[in-house]
Design a protein around this nucleic acid. Structure first.
Lengths: 217, 217, 217, 217
DNA sequence: CATGAATGAGGCTTCATTCAT
DNA sequence: TATGAATGAAGCCTCATTCAT
């Protein structure tokens, strides 16, 4: 029973442990997304993960903790998918924005189960929903900072940037929500990202002059 | 034992019944909004409404049915608050849109409890959330029709109107969500409505020419 | 407002009162027989009888009391349908027995609803079932007395008459139970009554000599 | 972590599980028999069995399911206690019948609690009572087959065997019902079985010739 | 006499979690 | 590490009955 052997055993144990945990998370993702958090009873989860009750609690402190783990992971990946926009020229900024939106949409598409949990009609525990709200507020703050910067550069029209950041967030969320219903192709996502950006930058109206008129009452 | 007497009795009974029902709904609105549906136990509700268990079930088939009644009522009032836009001139249409948005925001402000239930971080039963989603889909459809009309008139830029209707819905929801946090004055609401419309119509950019450039890649 | 007028009013009130009570009992008979006592909720009964809650309690102290009224009435009619057998000759006794059995079966046939309550698969409150048991015990006692008398006359074989009275009761109950399933004609009933009597008096075996052998081990 | 160890653990777990289940069934048998199904509230049962609420539902889907388990078990044992009568000579058949009746009565005596549930004044859920009725109908069918056979051999008097089978069932049920009141000795049971058989085969009358007369009107 | 809104005790069941093995 | 039997708090709902009108 040398140290090596122990290492091997420990390694195997660790591998098995990780595998079990992964099995649980996979089942959780699917069930929570399909039925919501409250509607998913632990026994459902245990059966789907093929794990005993006790085993579950060996890996997570509570049902809610398992959910939080999913959430946390997804939010981090979402954060990571969005790189900072280091404005050089307006064109470059626009392209970076497009790329960011596309990457985020791609992630949402890849993780449709998780996305349904966050954006769509599935109810989740209040405590976690607040967590989620804080996350989105963080995103809104980032957007606002970008808008403020744009105003200083004279690119963005004067006005309440906090509000507009929220509006923009609403647009993004709706864009993401669409992905929770049907899977998109990469091409679709490109188009969607452009539509989002267009809408955000130029609104709905056709004639720039008409726009000016519309805005100034 | 005349018909009149019976009517009187029935009327009084009815009045009392309605009063009780109203008391229950009021308590439900407050508690559900504050704590969410699942976190609100029936006993809490009963105490807040000062009714006995049986009385509650005399008026509603289930806890969920009480929730549904609140929801239904609110959605109807929301629908009613938004009149159809019978486009004559662009200016008139714009004013009608503004008025609609303002009215909806006013309702949301008046019913902050209900609004939190619909727009914010409170979890509600999945079945009802789907109901809600159908409602919002209906709103999106209305918006899309308006955009299609605008395109035919040459006012709205070419592009996917279904998508833009969703975006617009996202903006509106975010605008409403803000009201769930702090009460607004009528003045605030006017300003908010204008910001919404501006954002939707003209986007973020300052210079109409820049817009044209931005849009055409 | 003479005394006469009052009498008239009182009479009318009484008539109406009786009519209401009858309506309740009719509904009770049908529902209890169809669904059992526990499975019949008061609201069902009220709707079937077209009576308000309070009205029901004006006529009966409780749901159970209504049931008891049905039971009591039926047992009394059952008692009344069976005349005493004043033995003169064996033949006459036999004919009287036959007539008694037929009358009882006729009543059971007429009141199939009530009969199902007493004889068949419908559960009734324990307290009333005990009442019922006492009634049947009374019937058994009557039968036993007749058997004792028959033994003294040398007609009935020696042996435990209490036991045989119970056996006979079992036969009668099974005979009645059959009626709860399908209605019989008068002719059927005659035949049934004869079969009952035959079985009771002479058993199953064909050959009287074989019988003697069978009995004496 | 050898297979043996797992087996051992599983075995112990199983043993404990079975013990708990048995404890619940024992308590259910006693309480249901004493107070009836509806009158026995779950808390009573839990206390008597010394198990927690959840534990009960770990073993049975519902209160009714626990009852059904008792019923099922008893009916099976009752079926098993009655061997087929393979007629050779009339005497042998008679002895086998006697033995069957005795065995059934012995079981009824041994399980007085269960017997009270089935035969006596305790009300049980309608669904289960129907189950019970089907069982008894099955018994009646068996009896009828035997009577038909007896008729073909010329032992049983001509007549409606279905009816007589029901009569006989009535006798047997009444005989069993007696056991639910006071415990019998083996000797009592022998006597009872003989009385049942005598009554069934030869009826009540003393004189075989009188029998013939009585039957032929 | 008739009504029906109100009552609250009592019912059954499900749940996430614990812990001995 | 993994197991699964046991837990009991908490949940929702139905019921027969009362009583003011």
């Amino acid at each position: 029973m040398s140290a090596r052997e122990l290492d091997g055993r420990a390694r195997r144990a660790r591998a098995s442990r990780e595998a079990t945990r992964a099995r649980i998370l996979k089942a959780a993702r699917e069930l929570f997304a399909r039925q919501g958090f409250h509607q998913t009873a632990l026994p459902d989860l245990l059966e789907a993960a093929d794990v005993a009750r006790g085993t579950f609690y060996l890996h997570f402190d509570s049902k809610e903790a398992a959910f939080a783990a999913l959430l946390e992971d997804f939010l981090q990946r979402l954060s990571a998918s969005v790189g900072p926009v280091t404005t050089r020229s307006p064109e470059a900024a626009r392209d970076e924005l497009l790329a960011n939106i596309e990457r985020a949409l791609a992630l949402v598409d890849d993780e449709r189960d998780l996305s349904r949990l966050l954006f769509a009609e599935v109810s989740i525990p209040d405590e976690l929903r607040q967590h989620l709200d804080r996350f989105f507020s963080g995103v809104a703050a980032l957007i606002q900072r970008a808008l403020d910067h744009g105003q200083r550069l004279g690119l963005v029209r004067p006005g309440d940037t906090a509000l507009r950041a929220r509006f923009l967030l609403g647009v993004l969320i709706e864009a993401a929500r669409g992905s929770t219903r049907k899977r998109r192709t990469a091409r679709d996502r490109q188009r969607l990202a452009r539509e989002v950006l267009e809408f955000a930058l130029a609104g709905l109206l056709r004639d720039p002059r008409a726009i000016a008129a519309a805005v100034r009452r």
